[in-house]
């Protein structure tokens, strides 16, 4: 039950939207990273990691 005991309660509607949107964006990101990796691989460049 802990899941819903949040300090601010945005409600289920917002959560559902967020999960769908984040899922879609995560999918786009995965494709983009994959393409990027392929592109670097083809040119024989080392792979980098991102941080802040």
């Amino acid at each position: 039950m802990k899941f819903f005991l949040l300090y601010v309660d945005p409600g289920t509607g917002s959560f559902i939207a967020q999960v769908l949107i984040a899922g879609f964006l995560g999918f786009l990101f995965a494709i983009r990273s994959w393409l990027y990796k392929m592109w670097r691989k083809m040119r024989g460049l080392p792979l980098e990691d991102d941080d802040d």
């Binding site: 967020q18 949107i21 964006l25 995560g26 786009l28 990101f29 995965a30």
Partner: peptide
């Protein structure tokens, strides 16, 4: 939602 998805958001 996974951490990666949250970061993408």
């Amino acid at each position: 939602q996974s951490l990666k998805q949250t970061l993408a958001l």
